[in-house]
């Protein structure tokens, strides 16, 4: 991995990102509209390198690892590309076309959130600062 020293680092950062994103009214409302159980699968970088968010039924819950229930959507990619993606440095359409991101399930809901990636990136930068990982911020 280019940006992470081990598989726990990205999951720490991404879970904190979602905790912060929940506090933003626009993103929170957008996530609730997705109404899916999503597994972000980075296990190509380690068996424990994944997390999930559950935005079904008007709630937003997140946790490390694969969800216990069958996910509605699985996004599989590397932890480095996930870092680029949350930093808004990875064109998601291009990444899917070039198989850097593999999608299983309906991505319609998530597609509606794609325009919000710029805002997510701003929050993510704050998360990295809070974690003392300024060196990981992509310019």
């Amino acid at each position: 991995m280019e940006y992470w020293k081990d598989e726990t680092e990205p999951i720490t950062a991404f879970l904190k990102l979602f905790e912060e994103a929940k506090k933003d009214e626009e993103l929170s409302s957008g996530l609730k509209k997705v109404n899916q159980l999503i597994w972000f699968d980075y296990t190509e970088d380690g068996p424990n390198c994944s997390f999930h968010i559950d935005c079904r039924g008007g709630k937003i819950e997140s946790g490390a690892g694969k969800p216990s229930e069958t996910p509605d959507l699985i996004m599989s990619l590397s932890a480095d590309d996930a870092h680029r993606s949350w930093s808004n440095k990875l064109n998601p359409v291009m990444a899917i076309t070039r198989r850097k991101i593999r999608v299983k399930g309906s991505a319609t809901g998530l597609l509606k959130l794609a325009p919000k990636l710029k805002k997510v990136a701003t929050i993510y930068e704050g998360v990295l600062r809070d974690l003392g990982w300024q060196d990981k911020i992509l310019k």
Partner: peptide, 20 residues
């Protein structure tokens, strides 16, 4: 993926992305 998105919501499926 593009087919499933268009099957679900038609050719305007990504209109929001285009608007942004």
């Amino acid at each position: 993926l593009a087919s499933s998105v268009m099957r679900e919501n038609g050719t305007a499926a990504n209109l929001e992305g285009g608007a942004f």
